[in-house]
Nucleic acid binder design. Structure first.
Lengths: 247, 247
DNA sequence: CGCCACTTTGATCCATGTCAAATGCGGTGG
DNA sequence: CCACCGCATTTGACATGGATCAAAGTGGCG
């Protein structure tokens, strides 16, 4: 069954890069609300679909009170935390299908700032208002526990490997993870849009931006990838995997 | 009100290093079960208090089916995940008051292996059996969401800083975090027992064990810490904090 | 067309990994 | 109680990956 958010009109080609609802991290909760009867006590406007976000716009700021979780329909975002020296460190990227801000639910405050890397669309679920409305949200809670548990496990592994890997390994693993995430969401994994700057990648991977640059050109020279402007094409996925693991 | 697990007898001095129930991460759930009436449907033996664990003993292995969460009463544990090259990477340490294995609840399987670093005591809550018994565990679930959410946030920050810090910064931050955790649990923060080997620390911090060694001796020479065998004393906490942040 | 931000490329230096040897410590057996 | 062995730790010497500094190239946008 098609869901309403997938039937909306769209301008020239934007939809090509949009994740289907069935592949979206927010979908389990969307479904609960889709079937909320009028008069069930769920206030209107709790779930907003496909809201446009312009490049550079900020969804929320670190330590702002938690109000909503977001799901990326199209485009991309970066998460940052303030540094001790007051510059920002990139701690993650969100791609179509990813859920944004769920950690904030547990703490009542968002734990990082999130900003659009390009023109994007998000679905917004105002969980705080839903909670206040007193409507039972068991299904939502259960989904949340699983999501958070997996995030913890994933993070452990990610940290454990990132910290011991050299620059090439990190970069290769990063490219592969972007590819994997795109293909999981049904957006094809060979063609990747590097919407973030070299500096963002560098900050995320704990490297200097010059190192990112050198790495990408080396990967290109050895035929692992092809790079034109922001668009990256995987040519030798197996080779990249070799680099990422064996060093 | 004193709780039962704090009244148990103990041999010579062991109790000095034991966390009080009121400071323990498992306590919210313990309380729920403490007041479970006979005939409430809670099977006996779901909650085991102060079980002894000998040095080197393994609580559970990665990918083993999830059965229970553990709380450290005394002693310490390390968590490891298998490496691509089949050696183990240390991904965390558990100190008195810490909760072990909760990530497994979401996934139905444990996500890492946990082994005792010294003779220890744990409280064991067999959540899987509790779930099977059909008894409502809303309070437990709510506690879990908060715990996991905080863990995610903490991990983000930890990863973000670890990856960009040099050896001295990492080591200083590590020592400070041990101290902080001990003092949060009411066990005093100046005197720390380094129950893990240099190799374990190195693996955890992503450094060579020689680097750990050199760092510790340098810290000692500059009067930041005093080190005798496994026992570490903080002499200049502020100095350490300087090293950890400013580099 | 020219400015500005971002990226690429080159040269140099330092932190830390690696290899090797010395030291210390606990356990075991005589 | 001492001698010996094995293992963890410490210390030293050296090599190198990546940070840093500097400068040139590139693209977007007014």
């Amino acid at each position: 069954m098609l869901k309403s958010c997938c039937l909306t009109d769209s301008y020239d080609g934007e939809r090509l890069l949009e994740v289907a609802c069935s592949e979206c991290g927010l979908d389990p909760m969307c479904q609960v609300l889709d079937y909320a009867e009028p008069g069930s006590g769920v206030p209107p406007g709790i779930l907003l679909r496909r809201q446009p976000v312009t490049k550079g716009e900020q969804l929320f700021h670190v330590e702002q009170p938690f109000t909503a979780v977001y799901a990326v329909k199209s485009g991309s975002f970066k998460a940052t935390v303030p540094d001790l020296n007051c510059n920002e460190r990139v701690v993650g990227f969100y791609l179509p299908g990813d859920l944004i801000g769920a950690e904030g639910m547990a703490n009542r405050f968002y734990t990082h700032s999130v900003r659009a890397l390009e023109t994007s669309r998000v679905c917004v679920l105002e969980i705080a208002r839903l909670q206040e409305s007193g409507r039972s949200i068991e299904a939502v809670q259960q989904a949340l526990i699983e999501m958070l548990g997996q995030e913890v496990a994933l993070n452990h592994r990610l940290t454990a490997s990132l910290i011991r890997q050299n620059a090439d390994q990190r970069l290769a693993a990063f490219i592969l993870s972007l590819s994997l995430r795109a293909s999981i969401r049904g957006l094809g994994g060979k063609q990747i849009n590097l919407s973030m700057s070299r500096s963002d990648m560098a900050s995320y991977l704990g490297l200097a931006r010059e190192t990112i640059s050198r790495g990408l050109t080396r990967f290109q020279k050895t035929g692992l990838i092809k790079l034109r402007k922001q668009s990256l094409t995987l040519h030798d996925e197996e080779g990249l995997r070799q680099v990422a693991t064996c060093g």
